[in-house]
């Protein structure tokens, strides 16, 4: 067990999978000679050479499609989006090509590809560079959507994503890259579609993922000081959603808060709430509350930006409300 940053955990996963399988290659803007815009690919060019670590022009649609084409005939591309904001230029390839290929070919042509890069807001980057895309892609049958919160999950889930037979949208937390944590050595592969109970508790379930996991845990500590024992579930995979873990927890706590970085309308939390009300209506002792980013384009101003973002205090308040405290 080594202590690694989230960034280096991703780097290790890439390195191990590239060493393990010569069909795996990394393609994207600045991934090779620049060592990665966020240094996730640091050292990979030196180790694997330019055939397998490929710098592209700024042409997201084009190189996303090139990745899909290569996957159609059996390679295992990892396509880095410098940020998911830029992947909007490539969404046609992700949705219309990658997600639908297996189905519209009657099962003949699969697309084992990973699209990965940082998502969510950083600090004062303004409206076009500060958005969470999980719900966009989770809407699409044919895609799997992963958003890890810890270095260990970043490594284990990226390795699982690269080995998966289907297209995976892998959304890293731009503000998580420097987060440190213990990461299992060796072939640590985390199953796709399994949530993780990051903190066990009995009074209220807080469901979160990616950047809302840390504030949820912080909120749980603050709640503990007030005598409330909160359970924190990290979804880890958005699609397929781990319904069993969610329902099992809510059946015990009878109260639930869903926190996510994205916008409220048709967000990930909306899907989670829909599932719970259908499958566990009788278990609920209070309406489920959601904590989301504000329903606005992200403002630049520091004070406004802080107001737009999810934080521990907002999650704590919501938990107290569902407990009628």
């Amino acid at each position: 067990m080594a202590t690694l940053t989230y960034r280096d955990a991703l780097n290790v996963a890439l390195r191990e999978e590239m060493a393990r399988d010569d069909r795996v290659f990394l393609m994207g803007e600045e991934v090779a000679e620049y060592d990665g815009a966020y240094k996730v690919s640091r050292g990979l060019l030196k180790e694997f050479g330019p055939k397998r670590v490929v710098d592209t022009p700024i042409a997201e649609l084009g190189f996303a499609g090139i990745g899909v084409g290569a996957a159609m005939v059996g390679l295992r591309p990892v396509i880095e989006m410098m940020t998911w904001n830029f992947a909007l230029l490539a969404i046609d390839q992700i949705v219309n090509s990658a997600a639908k290929m297996r189905y519209m070919s009657g099962g003949q042509v699969g697309v084992p590809i990973v699209f990965r890069g940082p998502g969510g807001a950083a600090l004062q980057l303004g409206a076009q560079h500060s958005q969470a895309f999980e719900s966009y892609y989770a809407h699409i049958p044919g895609l799997k959507v992963i958003a890890p919160a810890t270095p260990a999950d970043a490594k284990g889930l990226l390795k699982a994503a690269i080995r998966d037979e289907d297209p995976v949208v892998f959304i890293e937390g731009e503000m998580l890259y420097n987060l440190k944590g213990e990461v299992p050595d060796g072939d640590h592969v985390t199953p796709i579609g399994k949530a993780d109970i990051k903190r066990a508790g009995k009074d209220v379930t807080i469901i979160c993922h990616s950047k809302t996991v840390a504030p949820s845990l912080k909120a749980a500590e603050a709640l503990a000081a007030e005598g409330v024992d909160a359970e924190v579930i990290d979804l880890r995979t958005i699609r397929p959603l781990d319904v069993d873990t969610i329902l099992e927890s809510v059946a015990r706590t009878n109260r639930c808060v869903v926190a996510e970085e994205g916008w409220p309308f048709a967000g990930v939390g909306a899907q989670v709430v829909d599932t719970i009300q259908r499958e566990a209506f009788d278990a609920l002792d209070a309406p489920i509350l959601r904590v989301t980013g504000a329903d606005v384009p992200m403002p630049y101003n520091k004070v406004l930006e802080r107001a737009a973002k999810v934080d521990a205090a907002k999650i704590q308040d919501a938990a107290k409300k569902v407990l009628y405290l």
Binding site: A70, V73, N96, V109
Partner: peptide
Amino acid sequence: GGHGIVGSHIPLAAGVAFAHKY
């Protein structure tokens, strides 16, 4: 295929060719 979005499959062809070269 058989692709229905105008021009969308053009990069796919380059990807297949990329794999052949790879």
